[in-house]
């Protein structure tokens, strides 16, 4: 499993791997929003938690179809299915690789983007924390969607339609955590819900995604 993780990370940083695509998208969004909304700090601070979370979600969505599609096209997925790795493990590793290349950079860069959107100083910590806890669920749910649509021509749109509704709970509790943190209220409750969603997703989805892959491979 380590070998697969290292291979996927290596592929992501090599030419054409798409590393940094999500980050660049996030940056574009966060620089464009102030132009569109106007530079008043008050307005921006009000919408910043929502914008940041929606941005993270869309950035994550951008690279989802690569999780399995590339391995499907060159036949690696068939070979991985006959390898000693359990399919659930393969799904988990692929989602982890996606998170490390997409989610983790977002978490690390989030404070900078928060500044661009006038996010209150008190909310910065909550933003990083909520993204750190919430984005693994985004990658895992995305892997499920990718497993369902693997092998479909132009499955990207269908993938988005399938996955976005599943992202809603994470989005709600993630943005709520940041909003409450910024307003000086107790942010532990939404954060606990966010954590619960992520844990449930990480526990259950690998099995669902592996089942979907098995059906799609035959």
């Amino acid at each position: 499993m380590t070998a697969l993780l290292l291979r996927d990370l290596r592929l992501a940083v090599r030419a054409g791997g798409g590393f940094g695509l999500g980050l660049a998208f996030f940056l574009i969004l966060c620089t464009l929003v102030p132009f569109g909304v106007g530079p008043q700090g008050g307005t921006l601070a009000l919408i910043a938690p929502g914008i940041l979370w929606v941005g993270a979600l869309l950035a994550c969505l951008l690279s989802l179809d690569r999780i399995f599609a590339l391995d499907w096209e060159d036949g690696s997925l068939d070979l991985l299915a006959t390898a000693p790795l359990p399919m659930e493990g393969t799904v988990l590793v692929k989602a982890a690789a996606h998170w490390i290349t997409t989610g983790l950079p977002l978490v690390a860069a989030a404070p900078v983007f928060g500044l661009l959107l006038h996010l209150p100083a008190g909310a910065q910590g909550w933003l990083v924390l909520s993204l750190l806890i919430g984005t693994p669920a985004l990658s895992m749910l995305g892997a499920f969607g990718a497993a369902l649509t693997v092998g479909l021509r132009r499955g990207g749109l269908l993938l988005s339609l399938l996955v976005l509704p599943l992202y809603v709970p994470t989005l709600i509790f993630g943005a709520e955590t940041v909003r409450r943190g910024g307003a000086g209220m107790d942010a532990i409750t939404p954060l606990a819900f966010l954590t619960a969603i992520t844990l449930a997703v990480l526990g259950a989805i690998p099995f669902a995604a592996a089942a979907a892959l098995r059906v799609n491979l035959r």
């Binding site: 070998a3 090599r14 991985l80």
Partner: peptide, 30 residues
Amino acid sequence: DAIAYAAHADGIKGALTVRENLGFWAQVFD
């Protein structure tokens, strides 16, 4: 775990070297 399958598609990653491609499968299959 007795069967090694080789399909029409070779499952080769163009961005990796020959050694890396083969080394990956050697690691996966131990």
